[in-house]
Amino acid sequence: MKHVISVTVENKPGVLARISSMFARRGFNIHSLTVGPTEDPRLSRMTVVVDGPEMEQIVKQLYKLVHTVKVTELDPTETVEREIMLVRVNAEAARRGELLDAANLFAAKVVDVGASTVTFEVAGEPSALNDFLELMRTYGITSLVKSGRIAMAKDLKTTTKRSRLRTA
């Protein structure tokens, strides 16, 4: 089973190396890992998707690193998850129209057109990306790049407020 964890770390040189080294040393599998700055320039946030049952140990070992400030395992039902990918698909002239129609359904943007391929950019929920890939397989995928997931817990307080507003 895949778990999504959000790790807030001090924005210090080498912090990504520390995290990935710890995962390697403890034998934890990383499915994807993204990292970037946050609203606070002293902090970075990582979204790590991990495989495997040792969640408690993973969280504890992350906390053990001196630069780790906060670790949250995100509940998929209360989380916004996004991923972006670039996918290059075979597109002979005869099937190109059909291909573009299909892509349209997923709001896939055409970002490059070659002699016999089209490259799409798709952003959205990871499951939507996978659905699109399934569809594209029938045309033949020649190249694929995924960004890895980013995720943020939903602001449940706001949701409650809004629903209250609506009922009122």
Partner: peptide, 16 residues
Amino acid sequence: TWGISMPCTKHNYLVT
């Protein structure tokens, strides 16, 4: 040294 000693220290520094 920083990279080599990372997994065998509680913490380590390269002073910049």
